[in-house]
Amino acid sequence: MAAAAAAGAGPEMVRGQVFDVGPRYTNLSYIGEGAYGMVCSAYDNVNKVRVAIKKISPFEHQTYCQRTLREIKILLRFRHENIIGINDIIRAPTIEQMKDVYIVQDLMETDLYKLLKTQHLSNDHICYFLYQILRGLKYIHSANVLHRDLKPSNLLLNTTCDLKICDFGLARVADPDHDHTGFLTEYVATRWYRAPEIMLNSKGYTKSIDIWSVGCILAEMLSNRPIFPGKHYLDQLNHILGILGSPSQEDLNCIINLKARNYLLSLPHKNKVPWNRLFPNADSKALDLLDKMLTFNPHKRIEVEQALAHPYLEQYYDPSDEPIAEAPFKFDMELDDLPKEKLKELIFEETARFQPGYRS
């Protein structure tokens, strides 16, 4: 834990890192770190609560700039109880001085990944967590956004079992017609939660990839272990087919990539493993919904509104309290091709509203 900075004593240090967030945020305490930044909790002297502050230093890398800009653009436009918001952003007053960006968010005690390492969940908890994931996802999908990296560590939890989806750095506007060349190379989302079509096709992607990830998360809540822990690309596919069985001819016809289709045709026939054999203690309604989410063919996979209306979630289902976005989200430009200098300018502009004396 960093010592509390005395008023006016300059930035606090946390594990050798400068955290320049005073005077409003003090009493910093280390939480963890990701690929390009550290997260601390801090005391907000204005709202009198502890908050989470993520320090991001992305400006050396085009990919990190892209992810940072995506996350900020999306989260500043989203407003939903099951999606983490941005409360404040701290950065230098000029673009030349801006080396880091500090993002202030609600402090959540833990995440689903940490929880599943230590606790076996009751059916009631599984049901409530799944409902909140789908409630947040309904809003995301209504904005025409794909999260693309749903996994237990991106689901934040607090002691009252509130759940918030975080990390929109890989999110995209849904565009089933656009052929994202190089899709697989830039697709760094965790393999275990990846839909089979991501490994088999490169053309376009749809909201059904997020539903697949939610199915993987439900299976993990039922058993405290990942359902498809593939060691590499082909191993991942083999794990999936080992449980779902061989795809039907109709399902194979959806695979545009001939090499991928021929690979699947070359494999020995596998039978589907019954879900109640894998999860003998699970609620039968939970397994019915799991089956509809972990469907090989993305066109037959359940959609988020149908999933919310499934009998497993009937005690929570309330369409009048499951809000959607006001308007579909649009990125003005494809960020993939922009140089990091341009992305830095866009991050600077996007964060201006939090600067003292800002006038829109």
Rank of each mutant, 00 (worst) to 15 (best):
L28D: 01
L134I: 08
P323T: 13
L170P: 06
I72A: 01
A35W: 05
L267C: 04
P226R: 09
E345I: 00
V49G: 00
L218W: 11
P328Q: 05
S213K: 05
F348C: 09
I133K: 02
P328T: 15
T26A: 09
L278Y: 06
I84Q: 03
P298K: 05
I302A: 12
L76I: 00
H269Q: 12
E326T: 02
N253A: 04
K292L: 07
S284R: 07
R70F: 02
H125L: 14
V145T: 03
G136N: 01
L137E: 06
D337E: 15
E345K: 14
V14T: 02
K117M: 14
V273S: 02
K48M: 14
A35I: 08
A309N: 01
A4P: 00
E71P: 00
I31P: 01
A327T: 08
E334Y: 03
N82I: 15
K344D: 11
V104S: 04
K330W: 00
E81S: 10
C161L: 05
D167F: 02
R77M: 04
C254I: 10
A286L: 04
G242R: 00
I256H: 10
P229V: 06
A171D: 09
K99P: 08
D167W: 00
S213N: 13
I243S: 13
I103R: 07
L234K: 08
R67N: 00
E303V: 13
R15K: 14
P247A: 09
P311R: 05
H299R: 10
S202Q: 13
L335M: 13
D100I: 00
Q66Y: 03
I103L: 09
M108F: 04
K285A: 06
K270I: 06
R67H: 00
S223W: 13
S246A: 02
M293S: 03
A9D: 09
N281D: 08
H180R: 06
L346K: 11
H120C: 08
I256F: 15
G22D: 03
I74H: 06
T185F: 07
K231Y: 02
D88T: 04
K272Q: 11
V104D: 13
L258S: 09
A189Y: 08
I95K: 07
K207C: 11
E250W: 00
V101F: 08
N276E: 10
Q62L: 14
K285D: 04
L237W: 04
Y36W: 01
V145Y: 02
D111K: 02
E303G: 09
Q17E: 07
H299Q: 13
P298D: 02
G230Y: 00
I90Q: 00
D251N: 13
Q17G: 07
Q105V: 04
D175Q: 12
K117S: 04
R67F: 06
Q66V: 11
Y187R: 03
L237F: 09
G230F: 01
Y36V: 07
I255T: 04
C161E: 12
E334M: 03
I240S: 03
H310N: 15
Y113M: 10
G182M: 06
E350Q: 05
